[in-house]
Simulated assay, not measured.
Amino acid sequence: MKKSLIALAFGTLGLGIAEFVMMGILPDVAKDLNISIPAAGHFISAYALGVCAGAPILTLARKYPLKHVLLVLVALIMFGNICAAMAPNYWVLLAARFISGLPHGAYFGVGSIVAEKLADKGRGSEAVSIMVAGMTIANLFGVPLGTSLSAMISWRVTFLLVGIWGLVILYYIWRWVPHVEGLKDTGFKGQFRFLKTPAPWLILGATALGNGGVFCWYSYINPLLTNVSGFSAASITPLMILAGFGMVIGNLVSGRLSDRYTPGRVGTVSQALICVVLLLIFFLSPYKWLSVLLMCICTAGLFAVSSPEQILIIRVAKGGELLGAASVQIAFNFGNAIGAYVGGLAISEGYRYPALTGVPLAFGGFILFFIFYKKYQTKYQSHT
């Protein structure tokens, strides 16, 4: 495995902890800042808004070497998380979370392009999946570690850890990532020209709907496992580690299969699997170990579509690769927000119903992926 790809994965590991750990430490933050849990939830939204605001900034960085852009983004990751660790009140932490989110989509965008350029011939999707692997490992180890540190010491230590990790990312990107040939400058307007064709909208729509379907269920996984499946509250942490393990496996297997069978086919099949599994979760979640098995399969499916989406958007966004690659993260976060909201509406019917509500969204993602595969996959078979 190339050291350069590991360095890129270090970055997505830090981003993964910064994004997802807030869900686990929310009560600690709320108590320390003397605010309500719903008010603390704004820190999750602030990060997501930062992701959406930060991605288009890449249009201004199109003339700079990609390695230099990566280093600046990592510095911003460090700054945002250190500010979060030192935040004295609600408003400062809200601003720090927004700043922390700014480099997220941009890093994924630049990192994906660099990963594909550094990949061996015919292994572009696998290279991107290695970069994305940092995000899955964050869910497997980083988020549980951050949650534990928050409970044992302080939630501030968790954000400080991410800030310090930024130094490691900076060093290894500087050492291990070689100079990569920049992209052709198509001008400011040229960055957006790819959006005039249907193909990128199909991928972005599939990303938003597909992730929305999963997050209808996953946003409320804790009460489902405890109130329906019958697990104790103490079991949730090890169960979340199992869910993270599913993400790791799904991502890495998908990357390898995408190079063999095309990203469009792997993404379509994975999205179809998610639809079926969400439906099975609704019916079978009262059975403990079936519930756990289905949870792992569904989280594997969630990241099995990530690498295909990331690699495909680069291929269809000719002239606007940076913006396109970052836009997938906007669609991902938009889907998360919609899924959490729609799933919350369904909870009044019972904790199984968010999974059922997610099925139509996930099916919509499957339809868009299927249309892309049938109409455009051959045209965008390889990056040109």
Score class of each variant (00 low, 15 high):
residue 7 A to H: 10
residue 13 L to R: 01
residue 14 G to V: 00
residue 17 I to H: 06
residue 18 A to W: 07
residue 25 I to R: 14
residue 26 L to A: 13
residue 28 D to M: 14
residue 31 K to M: 09
residue 32 D to N: 15
residue 34 N to W: 05
residue 35 I to S: 07
residue 35 I to Q: 09
residue 41 G to F: 07
residue 42 H to D: 02
residue 47 Y to C: 01
residue 48 A to H: 07
residue 49 L to F: 15
residue 50 G to A: 00
residue 54 G to C: 11
residue 58 L to N: 01
residue 62 R to W: 10
residue 63 K to C: 13
residue 64 Y to E: 12
residue 65 P to L: 12
residue 74 V to I: 14
residue 77 I to M: 15
residue 77 I to Q: 12
residue 78 M to L: 13
residue 88 P to Y: 05
residue 90 Y to F: 15
residue 90 Y to V: 08
residue 92 V to F: 11
residue 94 L to S: 00
residue 97 R to F: 11
residue 98 F to L: 13
residue 103 P to T: 01
residue 104 H to C: 12
residue 105 G to I: 02
residue 107 Y to A: 06
residue 108 F to D: 07
residue 109 G to P: 11
residue 111 G to E: 05
residue 114 V to W: 02
residue 115 A to Y: 09
residue 115 A to S: 13
residue 118 L to C: 06
residue 118 L to Q: 05
residue 126 E to P: 00
residue 128 V to A: 04
residue 128 V to H: 07
residue 130 I to G: 03
residue 131 M to C: 10
residue 136 T to N: 05
residue 137 I to H: 11
residue 138 A to I: 05
residue 146 G to R: 13
residue 149 L to V: 15
residue 153 I to S: 12
residue 154 S to K: 09
residue 156 R to T: 04
residue 160 L to V: 03
residue 163 G to M: 00
residue 170 L to C: 00
residue 173 I to W: 01
residue 174 W to T: 05
residue 175 R to T: 02
residue 179 H to R: 11
residue 183 L to Y: 06
residue 184 K to S: 13
residue 192 F to D: 12
residue 194 F to A: 15
residue 196 K to Y: 13
residue 204 L to N: 00
residue 204 L to A: 02
residue 206 A to E: 10
residue 227 N to I: 01
residue 231 F to S: 03
residue 252 L to F: 05
residue 255 G to T: 08
residue 256 R to N: 10
residue 257 L to I: 03
residue 259 D to C: 09
residue 265 R to N: 14
residue 266 V to A: 14
residue 267 G to R: 08
residue 268 T to D: 08
residue 276 V to M: 13
residue 278 L to E: 03
residue 282 F to P: 11
residue 293 L to H: 06
residue 293 L to W: 07
residue 306 S to V: 05
residue 307 S to L: 04
residue 307 S to H: 05
residue 308 P to Y: 05
residue 312 L to W: 01
residue 314 I to G: 02
residue 323 L to G: 02
residue 324 G to D: 08
residue 325 A to T: 11
residue 327 S to F: 12
residue 330 I to F: 07
residue 330 I to V: 12
residue 337 A to N: 10
residue 338 I to H: 00
residue 345 L to N: 04
residue 357 T to L: 11
residue 357 T to R: 06
residue 359 V to F: 09
residue 360 P to C: 05
residue 365 G to M: 08
residue 365 G to D: 13
residue 367 I to K: 10
residue 372 F to P: 00
residue 381 Q to H: 14
residue 383 H to L: 15
residue 383 H to E: 14
